[in-house]
């Protein structure tokens, strides 16, 4: 069976690409520290030596629209074109193309449906920055095949937080039951407190540093009970109007498992939102250079 060699949860900040590649007066003062942190975070994936990436993210009204909105969707295609005109326009993101891993996509869909998750699927999916940002930060060569999993954290009515956790738990089991000898990393991105298009947007920090502090603690300690006891669809409005993206972190806590302490934890307090990076190694921390 396949092995889950790393579970990674991260914020996805679309400004990283531009900040990290800009030079001279265009380079923001926080860029060097950000690049250092990302480079260290990248190493946590590299040393796990993955063959395949399951990538959990959320479409930002690009291909998925209100006339036909899935709650959870799995891509099954040989290739995924990536990034969109408005992401190029606003964030300077490059157009990309990722290879798919259709056998694993098919397995996730079949086993997910059989486990009670009525997953939607797409055979022609152009993915956006929720998945390409972690490719840029964690695997910039974009050389591994992927299975994209999209969640709806964006267009209410949304699934309950516990459903994200349950899907994460199911994805872990499903990947581990894939008849393959490949090494799989499961990577998902979301947000801590975040406000977009509201009065608390683009402040000097994230809109709710106290929520961010507690969220990092929940994730780092695998404290699913504590997190689920406090986080509801209603409560997530308080830290910022885009904070429902935190449910993708909850999904990744489900993947990592209840009580699983992260092997790597880092964060970076930026204007606008806090960055946070977590890695779990289900089979122990791999040796460097192994």
């Amino acid at each position: 069976m396949a092995t889950v060699v790393a579970v990674i949860a991260s914020t996805h900040h679309p400004f990283y690409y531009r900040a990290s590649t800009s030079t001279g007066p265009d380079r923001p003062p926080f860029a060097d520290e950000w690049v250092r942190k990302i480079t260290a975070f990248r190493e946590t994936l590299t040393r796990a030596r993955p063959d395949v990436l399951v990538m959990v993210g959320s479409d930002h009204f690009h291909q998925l629209w209100l006339d036909n909105m899935p709650q959870f969707l799995v891509g099954k295609a040989p290739f995924y074109d990536a990034n969109w005109y408005n992401e190029e326009r606003e964030f300077g993101l490059p157009r990309m193309k990722l290879r798919g891993q259709e056998d694993l996509s098919a397995h996730v869909l079949r086993a997910g449906l059989d486990a009670g998750f009525d997953l939607a699927f797409s055979n022609e999916l152009r993915i956006d920055h929720s998945i390409t940002c972690p490719i840029i930060t964690l695997r910039p060569d974009a050389d591994l095949p992927v299975v994209p999993v999209y969640t709806n954290i964006f267009a209410p009515p949304l699934p309950q937080p516990k459903r994200f956790v349950q899907l994460g738990q199911a994805i872990r089991q499903i990947v581990e039951s894939w008849p393959s000898d490949l090494r799989v990393a499961i990577v998902g991105t979301g947000h801590l407190s975040l406000e977009l298009g509201g009065p608390r947007q683009f402040g000097p920090h994230g809109p709710d540093p106290e929520f961010d502090r507690r969220a990092v603690e929940w994730i780092a300690n695998g404290d699913l009970d504590g997190c689920l006891a406090e986080v509801t669809l209603d409560s997530l409005h308080a830290p910022g109007n885009a904070t429902h993206g935190f449910m993708d972190f909850m999904l990744m806590m489900g993947v990592a498992g209840a009580g699983a302490k992260a092997d790597y934890v880092d964060s970076l307090d930026l204007f606008h939102t806090m960055e946070a990076y977590f890695t779990w190694y289900p089979n122990g921390v791999p040796e460097v250079g192994a």
């Binding site: 930002h60 009204f61 408005n86 606003e90 964006f154 267009a155 977009l196 298009g197 509201g198 947007q201 109007n241 885009a242």
Partner: peptide, 8 residues
Amino acid sequence: AHPFLTLT
């Protein structure tokens, strides 16, 4: 209106 759409 969806704040993300308006903002973008």
